[in-house]
Amino acid sequence: MQVIRPLEQRPGYSLSALYPSVFARLLVERALQNGVPTSACLEGSGVSANDLCGFGSVMSGRQQRRIYENVAAAIDRQGLGLDHAASMRLDHFSILGHAMRCCETVRDALVLFVKYFKTLGALVDVSLVLDGGDARLVINDVYTDRHARRLVVEETFGGVHAIVDSFLDRPATAKELRLDLESLGDSDVWRDRIGATPVTDTICSLTFSSDVLDIEIGDESLHLLRAAAEEGCALLLASLEGHASFGWRVRQTMLESSFREQTMESIASEMSVSTRTLRRRLSAEQLSFSEIRVDVLTHAATDMLRYSSATVDDIARGLGFWDTSSFRKAFKSWLGMTPTEYRATVGEVSRGTDEERTR
């Protein structure tokens, strides 16, 4: 099992960061078709209609969230987010859309989509769980008020479905759709749009199987174009959220290296700097190597506990702990509870029983 998380320089959704306004514009256009004037959609956001129209226009996270909440308050209807997502095309995803076109398979495109998810300014936090041949997109958090929650869940899953659909010569069918009670609504609406009957759960997730994910959409000759486009995604992410800090670079290096072999010396070597330089530059950002490592280990541990059925012993070994008791003690110091207690609290992402699948 592998968990893919978006690259990010700041955790969560930044109200001050700048994000592309294209999806807010599409939503406002959809609201206008439903009889809601543009002025009502933009009320209190500080955004004008002209601000939405410029090529490459951006808005702050605070402005985008206000627009989504305005539209959700004006149109309290299931399916609005799915209708909105149906109008999305790869071109709307800017440089990320070009990078996805250059991927070899649908699976590769989804991994890239989640990796640079932060370039879209989406009002959700997601993870992509690769398990066996399946890929499961999980919504971890929603950054709106409760009235707009259903809208952004529908937008997220509808948008991913539209992306997958664009790569196929037939309608894409999801393997499984799990929704919490706030997002569920009428099951028929979801089945008609996503191709799967939703199962009630405590989390929201959308799963595609290998028969969809392994479909080829490009070939190896496009790898240079993909590399250039992916570099563009990284530059866009840095420009939208602020230039990458040294601490962020250390964190990403940790995530891409073996947990067992991580020391200040090994990370400094991978980053081609001395340990003295690494310590000094982190100190300049009021950070320490140990703080970043604890943050990385905490995220990795909670991912494994939440998204996999691996034992606590296996997780401890995977994170570089020589014995399980040391891992349990460290985990409790991080979150105030044991790994077993954490897993019981958040609930393991279930695969569903045969009985659930036939309801």
Rank of each mutant, 00 (worst) to 15 (best):
T144S: 08
S94V: 08
G97V: 04
R136S: 15
K118I: 02
Y143S: 03
G133V: 12
L80G: 01
L128H: 10
V138H: 13
A148Q: 08
E154M: 02
L112I: 14
D141V: 01
G79T: 07
L128K: 13
L123Q: 08
H98V: 09
E155V: 03
V142C: 09
A73V: 05
V152T: 09
D141S: 07
I75K: 00
L130S: 04
V106L: 10
K115V: 13
R146L: 13
S127V: 13
D125G: 07
I95H: 09
A109C: 02
R89L: 06
V152E: 00
H161M: 13
L112G: 09
G159N: 07
V153G: 14
T105Q: 01
A72V: 10
F93Y: 13
L112N: 10
S94D: 09
R77Y: 06
A74W: 01
G158R: 02
S127Q: 13
L137T: 14
H161P: 02
G79Q: 12
D108G: 11
A109N: 08
A99K: 09
V153H: 05
G159D: 02
V160H: 01
L137I: 15
A73Y: 12
A99I: 14
R149G: 10
R101H: 07
G79L: 00
A109G: 05
L82R: 06
N70D: 05
I139T: 13
Y116C: 15
D145P: 14
G159R: 09
G121N: 06
I139K: 01
G81E: 00
K115W: 05
I95K: 08
T105R: 15
V111G: 11
F117H: 13
R89N: 07
N140F: 03
E154I: 01
I139E: 04
M88Y: 02
D83Y: 02
R101A: 02
G133Q: 14
M100I: 08
T156I: 07
L80H: 03
G133S: 13
Y116V: 10
E69R: 10
M100A: 11
T144P: 03
D125S: 08
N70W: 02
